[in-house]
């Protein structure tokens, strides 16, 4: 797999460290009442077959956090944006 890093250009997959699903939202509260949200955030995953957006750290390159959109069945990579841009776009939609 080749990942198009917005800073470094197209780089091989071994330069990246994957964190997983980018669609989960970290709860902002430590209130015990929010434990259900924490449970969802830490454990539950949609785990889709097909199009999937995931956090990737360019640990062997510019060290930026990215969100890579990829197909989990074919390994086709659709694109990559910085995690900041992804979060802003997500915030704009919400």
């Amino acid at each position: 797999m080749l990942i198009p890093c917005p800073h470094c250009g197209t780089r091989p997959v071994e330069e990246f460290t994957f964190l997983g699903d980018a669609s989960v939202t970290r709860p902002t509260s430590n209130d015990p009442a929010s434990m259900e949200q924490w449970y969802d955030y830490v454990y539950l995953r949609a785990n889709p077959r097909g199009r999937f957006a995931e956090f990737a750290h360019h640990s062997g390159g510019c060290r930026a956090w990215l969100v890579v959109t990829r197909n989990t069945e074919t390994h086709e990579v659709y694109g990559a944006v910085t995690a900041r841009d992804y979060a802003r776009a997500k915030g704009a939609k919400a």
């Binding site: 797999m1 091989p12 997959v13 071994e14 994957f18 699903d21 077959r49 989990t72 069945e73 390994h75």
Partner: peptide, 13 residues
């Protein structure tokens, strides 16, 4: 391989 996948093949690295 450390990324989500349903493909029954991995990568060369």
């Amino acid at each position: 391989d450390s990324y989500n996948s349903y493909a029954r093949r991995g990568n060369l690295p």
